[in-house]
């Protein structure tokens, strides 16, 4: 009986303030969409980082006949230098395994990766031989790099992160923009919820005064107001999740279909969990907090 009463009151409130309810739904939707977008970008960043750490190999390029004087003052690597480097790598606690890639191996890989137009002008001795090193702890990449660059016979130990760094920075920036927009819109939705409650409280002041006088509990009086905000926010959150799902399904999905695109990307299952539940939760929590705060202000009990 009492639950039925609350639901009826809530329904009446939603209908009475239809335009305000729509406004709350839309603003909540936009704000949670940006919030969810920020979460997804962060998930993509961690996927990329994970993949990169899985794959990380330190390449120690050795001096060859085409190396410059500046990089290799001692000229091409000698076999003594090569053996010393290998021994040093294999004894290092940071190193898991060492592969040697000769100039011929490098040339074979090169042929595989690029088409004829590029490869026809390249000969094996133009490519550097190298040690490919797997690390026990990929995050200590930099230590290995510092230890081996500049050793005799080593031409270069390139830093792959120089390539990935700007990408991560850009994605972090995108996250910040999305979360900033989300915060702004969340403020709007809180203000709208507050205004809606103020209007509802005014249009229902007579019912509320009678409820107080006959001794209805505070919870019963306030619950319909809070639930109105929660329902509107939930609808907004569901719409936002749907929009995000569609974005990943059609936007990211199209990218994935391209054959040359091998990077792992966020998937629709990432939207379903954990992004959508987090969005719903945030939407509900904000609606409840906004409602309770404005009820204190507009609804004396």
């Amino acid at each position: 009986m009492r639950l039925g009463f609350v639901v009826r009151e809530m329904g009446a409130g939603l209908r009475r303030n239809f335009t305000m309810t729509v406004a709350v739904v839309l603003v909540t939707m936009v704000s949670l969409f940006f919030f969810g977008l920020g979460l997804l970008v962060q998930q993509q960043v961690s996927i990329l980082k994970g993949d990169w750490y899985d794959r990380v190999q330190v390449s120690v390029f050795l001096c060859g006949p085409v190396s410059t004087e500046e990089d290799c003052p001692t000229g091409a690597v000698t076999s003594a230098q090569r053996d010393a480097l290998r021994a040093q790598l294999e004894s290092s606690p940071l190193v898991d395994r060492v592969f040697y890639e000769s100039q011929q191996d490098a040339y074979d890989n090169f042929l595989e990766q690029f088409d004829d137009a590029i490869t026809e002008n390249v000969t094996p001795d133009q490519l550097p031989e190298s040690f490919r090193v797997r690390l026990t702890d990929p995050s200590r990449y930099q230590e290995v790099r510092e230890q081996f660059s500049g050793q005799p016979g080593v031409e270069d130990v390139p830093d792959d992160r120089a390539v990935l760094g700007p990408l991560f920075a850009a994605m972090d920036g995108a996250t910040r923009v999305a979360l900033g927009l989300a915060a702004l819109m969340l403020v709007c939705s809180v203000l709208l919820v507050s205004t809606t409650i103020r209007l509802t409280a005014f249009s229902r002041r007579r019912e509320v005064s009678i409820m107080r006088l006959v001794g209805a509990s505070r919870a019963l009086i306030q619950l319909p107001f809070v639930l109105e905000g929660v329902i509107a926010s939930l609808v907004g959150a569901v719409l936002a999740s749907g929009a995000l799902y569609a974005l990943v399904e059609f936007g990211v999905g199209r990218l994935r279909e391209r054959p040359d695109f091998t990077t792992r990307l966020v998937e629709t299952s990432d939207v379903l969990f954990p992004t959508a539940p987090v969005m719903l939760g945030v939407g509900v929590v904000f609606a409840v907090v906004a409602s309770l705060l404005s009820l204190r202000r507009w609804l004396r009990v």
């Binding site: 009986m1 009492r2 009463f5 019912e207 009678i210 409820m211 006959v214 001794g215 209805a216 019963l220 009086i221």
Partner: peptide, 11 residues
């Protein structure tokens, strides 16, 4: 009836 409904009295 409103006075009884808000107190949760049965139908």
């Amino acid at each position: 009836a409103f006075a009884l409904q808000v107190l949760g009295k049965p139908r």
